[in-house]
Design a protein around this nucleic acid. Structure first.
Lengths: 210, 210
DNA sequence: GGGATGCAGTAACATTTGTTACACAGCACT
DNA sequence: AGTGCTGTGTAACAAATGTTACTGCATCCC
């Protein structure tokens, strides 16, 4: 495992911390679609992402969903952090967007390390900063953009985290992430196709100009 | 100043830290409407709120605005924190919602204290957590609520931070905060009045059932 | 082949929100 | 009283989004 950790975090963490992570962390491999965090649950360990991508969703009382942002290699989940440090319940849902490799670190170590390692502290602060910025960018999208631009932005984000211009999702799945209806997505995708932004096939969408 | 600090932060910080804040911080009193943070600017000092309320806004490229959340006594601005620690530009705008008393702490102390004081570290983590939660709640409002419910929620939040059932704002000002138009706000306020939720007067709105 | 199923395309319509335009009321100032 | 200004009420319309219903197409299974 140590090699995987080093490959992804050696610039961020000092050797001693890398060694500790190696000792107390457990390696985990999950398939696409795996539910990593359920809303309302307590979290037992935090996750460091080695490869793949995780999507973070917000769910309201009626079960309606909305995509907040994606996490990638080198990222961690700020909600996990604050849940661990503050002992709050999870406010979000996390699903593996692609097959992913993770390291799970028990929560007891979290606080210990924030005292012990400056690099860890900075990592945690930086993660919070990034997530706050991304949450605010999500607000920007919802508040300032119309659905067609939100959709295009969503598709581009998807191609980025999946490193693939082809998006293998149904219109219904996209509608869930953007909290709208399938018909609306179909309509707007057709418009994007006519404008030359995407090419539509059954079960997949090719994004043209990235 | 020390007394003001103690009154508001003595449960959070150890005496030694309170003393340091007293030595390096400067007291500041600002009137309602004062612009504390401009978007795009670099921030020279972070602020601890003693009394009053601050509203935090997001501004897009066209100058359109959207209220993110309010800060109150005992709060600090997470964006300031991350700007200071990460040396990023401000992503937001901060306006005094009411007359307010603040303590300004020079940014150099920020990092020093995160190393030195556990209570400071926890305060910073906790602030991040709160702001992230509030940003996500703002997302909830925009994504899941219709404008009439958003407006009602806004009015209730306002009465809370102002500690006053009477809201002294024009419809236009409310429209800016919610990123919609004056006509829409007038229309919905009228509806809320007919439903018995508010009472409308010139230049002010009385919120009935808090 | 025939049927069942899931996905996408589309029309028709409803609702919500945004826009433009104008009337009028209250207030300040002269 | 007359003038101008700001804030509010409202109608009429436009645009965006949501909803319902129906179609056909591909795939899978029998």
């Amino acid at each position: 495992m140590i090699q995987e950790i080093k490959n992804n975090y050696k610039n961020l963490f000092e050797d001693e911390l890398l060694e500790e992570i190696n000792q107390v962390g457990t390696f985990k491999q999950v398939p696409e679609g795996f539910e990593l965090i359920k809303p309302g649950s307590y979290i037992k360990s935090m996750l460091l992402i080695i490869s793949g991508a995780i999507k973070i969703l917000r769910e309201d009382n009626d079960g309606d969903e909305l995509l907040l942002y994606f996490l990638e290699r080198g990222d961690t989940c700020a909600m996990t952090l604050s849940c661990c440090l503050g002992h709050h319940k999870s406010e979000i849902k996390a699903i593996a967007e692609t097959d992913a490799k993770l390291i799970m670190v028990p929560i007891e170590k979290m606080e210990e390390w924030t005292t012990k390692y400056k690099s860890w502290r900075n990592f945690v602060f930086d993660s919070y900063h990034k997530r706050l910025i991304e949450a605010i960018e999500t607000i920007d999208s919802i508040a300032f953009l119309k659905m067609d631009d939100r959709l295009l932005k969503y598709l581009k984000d998807k191609t980025k985290v999946n490193q693939d211009n082809i998006i293998n999702n149904t219109h219904q799945e996209i509608a869930y992430d953007l909290h709208t209806s399938r018909v609306v997505i179909s309509r707007l995708l057709k418009k994007l196709e006519q404008e030359g932004n995407v090419k539509l096939n059954r079960n997949n969408i090719e994004v043209i100009h990235i």
